[in-house]
Computed example of a mutant assay.
Amino acid sequence: MSGYLSCREKNPRQPGSAHRTLRVLLGALGLCAASFAGAAAPTAEFNVATYNLRLNVASDGPNSWPHRVEAVKALIRYHEFDIVGTQEGLPGQIADLDAMPGFAHVGAGRDDGKDAGEHSAIHYRTTRFDLEKHGDYWLSETPDRPSKGWDAKCCNRIASWAKLRDRVSGKHFFVFNVHFDHEGDVARRESAKLMLRKIREIAGGDTVICTGDFNSTPDTEQIRTMKTALRDAREASAEPPYGPEGTFEDFKLDSKLPERIDYIFVSRGVDVLKYATLTDSVEARFPSDHLPVVARIRLP
């Protein structure tokens, strides 16, 4: 018996000790793996924005696009927009934004359904989202071709849409982006009805995000129409909205921002974690005559 005990005392690899050591090591590795996975796990949240770029016209002088383009791109990068619906962008402006690494866009020109005229483009991060399909239609009685609608006077108005897949969550959803007419009362009211009809036709019951310059204040019939099917992200935000309510400043730093005309709408069930109207300026100049609006959301 004494020899057997002596042998066990001299052997550090006895079965009981080895099992205990193995359990300790596996437990430590498990904790490390869990901690690493928790730290590195990608978020299923993302930022969606709407931004009227103000078209590129030389008559804007120091506020014309060549003087603003880098500020616009810097704002999009710094605030980490993952999806942004832009309005009024002409082909050259759209190309400038496409030059941002990791971004692509969908959307056609309102004058010919190709490149001519202003766009209601949807820009998205290609590392985060896969594009599955996309299309365009006009805000008119003939939405399948370039056209003015109802009592609109100056120009065609176009809406663009995209079906995207979020690579993080694997979820599919639709983004619609639009620019309502600024003159026709009937055109704005009918455009809201058309938007909801097209959303039903195109997206069915899938999750929808709708961004745009609606040229309409919250008390108007057309905004109330949009809210019959979608939620206003400002009102749905879990945190109090950040920044002013008004979104049109006409390049004036001292603007009282009397009108809120830019919106983000989301399907019921989408979590709006926070919402902001951004007042960034560079050297006492706004990057556009509209303020960008951004919401952080989580898909259902």
Rank of each mutant, 00 (worst) to 15 (best):
F214P: 01
A74I: 05
K73S: 07
Y275C: 01
W138P: 01
A28M: 14
V168T: 15
A187T: 13
V208Y: 04
P218F: 12
G170N: 10
K10Y: 09
G89M: 03
R165Q: 13
D60K: 08
F176Q: 01
L90F: 07
R189S: 06
L230D: 02
E249V: 14
R285I: 06
A39C: 11
V294T: 04
A40R: 11
A71M: 13
D130S: 13
E221M: 05
A295H: 02
L196W: 03
K73H: 08
G30A: 09
V186A: 15
H79P: 10
T247I: 12
R224D: 11
E9V: 15
V24K: 14
E190W: 02
E183M: 13
R234W: 12
I297D: 07
E249K: 10
R285W: 05
W150F: 09
A236W: 11
H19W: 14
F129G: 06
I202W: 02
R189L: 09
L5K: 15
L139H: 10
P91M: 06
G204Y: 06
T50R: 01
G135C: 09
D111M: 07
G212F: 03
H182M: 06
L5R: 15
V106F: 04
E45A: 15
L257N: 05
H67T: 13
S2V: 15
G149P: 00
K73E: 09
A284N: 14
T207P: 06
A49C: 12
T228W: 07
E183V: 14
L196C: 03
L26F: 04
T50A: 07
L22T: 01
D112Q: 00
A95S: 13
S6D: 14
I199F: 04
L194F: 00
V106S: 04
D111W: 06
R224P: 06
H172S: 14
F46K: 12
Q14M: 07
K133P: 10
A295D: 00
F251E: 00
T50Y: 03
W150Y: 13
G61F: 04
D232F: 06
S281D: 13
A108G: 01
Y275S: 01
